[in-house]
Design a protein around this nucleic acid. Sequence first.
DNA 1: ACCGTAGGAGAACGCTCGTTCTCACGTCAA
DNA 2: TTGACGTGAGAACGAGCGTTCTCCTACGGT
Lengths: 183, 183
Amino acid sequence: MDSALARERALDAAEELFYGRGVQSVGMDDVRGTSGVSLKRLYQLFPAKELLVEAYLERRDTRWRGRLAEYAERHGEPDERILAVFDWLGMWFAEPGFRGCAWLNAYGELGATSERVAGQVRAHKRAFREYLGALVAAAERPDALAGQLFLLAEGAMVTAGVTRSAEPAAEAREAARRLLEAG
Amino acid sequence: MDSALARERALDAAEELFYGRGVQSVGMDDVRGTSGVSLKRLYQLFPAKELLVEAYLERRDTRWRGRLAEYAERHGEPDERILAVFDWLGMWFAEPGFRGCAWLNAYGELGATSERVAGQVRAHKRAFREYLGALVAAAERPDALAGQLFLLAEGAMVTAGVTRSAEPAAEAREAARRLLEAG
DNA sequence: ACCGTAGGAGAACGCTCGTTCTCACGTCAA
DNA sequence: TTGACGTGAGAACGAGCGTTCTCCTACGGT
């Protein structure tokens, strides 16, 4: 198994385990067991657990925002694109194994102790907020609307995670629709 | 020091430490040091760390909802009461030492491993949602609005916690005002 | 065939931390 | 006074886990 493949396997295992059970309750030995990558290799690729955590969050960030953008961009009308964000959230919430927003979970777990993880969470949220800002600008709406939509989306993520339900996406979509309609 | 006082001291220390630094990075020894309550007493009052965590969340839940209701009820007009919730959130976010919603942080940290803590978080959020439901009903608005306001409030809490800013409360308040206005 | 290197399995190390135990001291009832 | 008891200080115990080390096997180049 070459390094690139071992790295992917390790990150796949890290993502499955860290997202599903939290970072602190997963040991490097669990990552080894799930990935099939030996401890020696793991530490060659990621010299400390924290680096594996950071790589996990970074890869997931890229993929998450990519998938969201890909879905939203299938819709031509600017207002539809905005609402599509909430549709996509609903599909995400309904996926098996959904356990809330990985970054908010990581923030609750590590935000107080790891400044780097806290920074990654802020960067991820800022990027999401800016993406909404671009959609809102394309719809020729005031930027303040993006902030409000962002709060709805964050509230939906958190609530879907805690209650294990996809319903908050529909509620947030409806609120977003009304804000669009009113403004 | 009698038992009741020791209990209060222990909970005061637990709250300060768990909320400020997270549950897992605080040891029972830290609680002893901050509270001045000996380990023996701590374990008499709370036979395991998890019980101390639960007691901390429960006491904080009572106080948090009490303070919110007290503030909101100073306002007579139903619509004003609803908006007062967001004003209160803004005051809370601006308090020194604010580090986001204690329950969401606890959920990120322990939700995957402690079913009891996860249940407390759900109960707390359900109670908050029901409180909003009561305010919305008093304003003779549809219950769906309560769900939307709830998402705004949750989004504001999360965002204020991550960005260390009180600003999201004002954004959420403005969104709430527009939803009230439109409905 | 031989040696040097890489890699795997897993033991070992060291630290943290939840929990319990030891021991000395003070208190109060008889 | 005495002895049972509660308490505090902190040592001790045991488990978990991040990280490193040992040892052994396999293989590639000469």
